Structures are given as structure tokens and as C-alpha cells.
Amino acid sequence: MTDVDQDYSAQATVTEAEFDAVMARYRSASEAAIAGLDGHPDLAFDPLSDERLDVWGIAPGELRPVVIAVHGGYWRMLSRHDTAFMARTLADAGIATVVPDYTLSPAASLEEIVRQVRAAVAWVHRHGTEHGLDPDRIHVVGSSAGGHLTAMTAVGGWQHAAGLPENVVKGAMTISGLFDLRPLVDTFANAWLNLDTPRAEALSPLLAPPGTAPLHVAVAEHEAAGFHRQSTEFHAHWPAERSWTLVPGRNHFDVFLDLADPRSALGEALLRLVRP
């Protein structure tokens, strides 16, 4: 493995057994969290791809603030069914959760994946009131590849073309994300991303016009060096209100699960972001 591969190999920071156990926890914790929650599962949000999302934690007669939770998986694995483990914690705080799918790489280009996640934001803004969601209180959170995609909804420059207000995202939390994709051109990940340098530049939130929403950047303590470095750079780059958490004792994969615990540093930070 080359040095640059090592920098961006999240899976190399855990054993195979640890990785498999966390992947299983994503699904089991999500299933437990949504059991009995009011919601609207399996809604089509993007006619160009026919991808779907689930809405959880709504309440009759309310328009609740929204957290759109974007899954990771290096843009090539996992789904919305693995990503609802925070839904009950948020519902208990009066917050709804939206978990979208996106077409996985290499079946979709990274440009298309970004478009789909932005389309989920647009769907909540345009159709949220029909499903108990407040279109003026949209927040986005994501881990790993989902951290990159979250950042791509928070940066400026895309909203006008989508017919959305510039401040459509009211807050964003990235967890162990990637924000400058140029190094990935020379890594193992390009086997499925198929990026060249100009496309990597265009898809890098660190190189995009920053947005105006409050940003919380988090990174796990036991993390590959590239994720640490890029999280630090993205936090420093953001001109609007920003905050930071280094999550002790966590690795690239289990850190995301902390959002299910309202007493964890990440759980508390997300609640503060949505309900300051």
C-alpha cells in the first residue's frame, strides 16, 4: 500500500472483525430506532434516478425541524436502511430524520451522487410540509463519504440553479469526511470513482464557495491521517459559525453511531446545531 493509500484507507485502521461488527450495528440499531416511530418510508424523491428516502420521527399537527442523514461507505456501499439509528434520539427531542439513498459508485458518477443528495434537500424544502417537516429548518449530517456529500449541500454556488434559497441548509455536521478529492485520484478508491484531477477539484467542497450555515466538523480519534488532516483544513476554511469535536476512543466507523446517544459529545453537538 502506498503512503497516499494509507492516508485514505479507513478500513486499515480497524480489524476485519471490528469492521463487520460495526456494519451489522448500523443495520440493527437503525431497525431498533425506527420501530414504532411515526413516519413515511419509501418515498420517491428524485424522478431522474428513482432513488427513495424514509422520513421518521414526525408528530401529528407539527412541522418538525429536519436532520437529513447521509450514509457513508466510500460512495460504493451501505444504504438508508443502515442510517436511521439516530432517529429515535432525534424524535425524542422533537426533530425528524430523513434518510435518503443514492445510487452507489461505480453505477453512478460522483457528480450524479452529489446531484441526488442535493435533490433530497430540494425535496424536503418543496414537499416537507406534506410530511410533517419544516422546510425552513433543514440540517444535514453525514459520515465519511456522507461527510463529503453533506459538505456539498452546505457549500454555496449550487442552490440558485436548483431553484432553492442560498440558505436552504440551516446547519451541517460532517463526521470524518473528505473535502479535497484530488489526492483520491492516486489511490485505490479511484478504481470505482474514476476521477481525474479537474473533476476531483470540481467535486471538492474545500475548493467550492463556502456557504453561510453553521458547520460542525467532527473526526474520530483513531482515524486515518488523511481524514484527520482534511477535517482540520475544512473546519479552518469555513468562514461562518463553526465548531469542532475530536471524538476520543472512536474509529472511522463506530463514531457515526454516537449520534444515537444524546449524552455523547456528537449527540449533544447535533442537538445544539438543530436547536441552538
Rank of each mutant, 00 (worst) to 15 (best):
A260S: 14
E223F: 09
A225R: 12
W192F: 14
V219F: 04
G267F: 01
L193A: 07
A218R: 04
A218Q: 07
A260G: 09
A213G: 08
E241S: 14
E268F: 01
L271M: 06
H252L: 00
V255S: 00
G267Y: 03
F234S: 05
G211W: 01
T197V: 15
H222R: 13
L215C: 08
S243K: 10
A236Q: 09
T245F: 02
E233Q: 14
D261H: 02
E233N: 06
A189R: 08
V247H: 03
L270A: 12
V247Q: 07
L270V: 15
P210I: 09
A208Q: 15
A202W: 07
A240F: 05
S264D: 00
P209T: 13
G267P: 03
L193W: 05
G226T: 05
L257P: 00
A236T: 12
V255L: 01
E201D: 15
E221F: 08
A218K: 03
A225C: 00
G226L: 04
Q230M: 03
S264L: 00
L203R: 12
A189G: 02
W244H: 06
A225L: 10
E268G: 06
E233S: 13
E241Q: 15
G226F: 08
R242C: 06
P210K: 06
H228V: 11
A200F: 15
F234K: 03
E221C: 08
H228Q: 10
V217A: 06
N190M: 10
A220I: 05
F234D: 02
R199F: 08
V247L: 07
L271T: 08
P239E: 00
L206K: 05
F256H: 00
W244Y: 11
T232C: 02
R199V: 15
E241Y: 12
F227Y: 12
P239D: 02
P262G: 01
G249H: 04
N194E: 15
T197C: 07
A208P: 02
P214G: 10
A236W: 06
Q230A: 04
A208N: 05
R263T: 11
V247T: 12
P214A: 11
W238Q: 09
V217E: 01
T197K: 10
S204M: 12
R242K: 15
A213T: 11
E268W: 02
S231C: 13
T197F: 13
P209L: 04
H235P: 03
T197E: 14
R250T: 14
T232M: 02
A265D: 09
R242T: 14
H237R: 13
N194R: 15
A191S: 15
P205G: 05
A220W: 07
T197D: 12
G226N: 08
L246I: 11
W192T: 13
N194H: 15
R263P: 00
L203K: 11
E221L: 08
P214I: 15
L193G: 11
L206M: 09
A240S: 12
G226W: 01
A269V: 03
L270C: 12
R263K: 03
R242N: 09
D196C: 13
A236R: 11
H228I: 12
E223A: 10
P262C: 01
A236M: 03
P239K: 05
A265Q: 07
H222V: 10
H237M: 10
F253W: 08
S231W: 06
A265F: 00
A240E: 04
V255N: 01
S204G: 14
A236K: 10
A220T: 10
W192M: 04
V217F: 03
N194K: 15
D196W: 13
L207T: 13
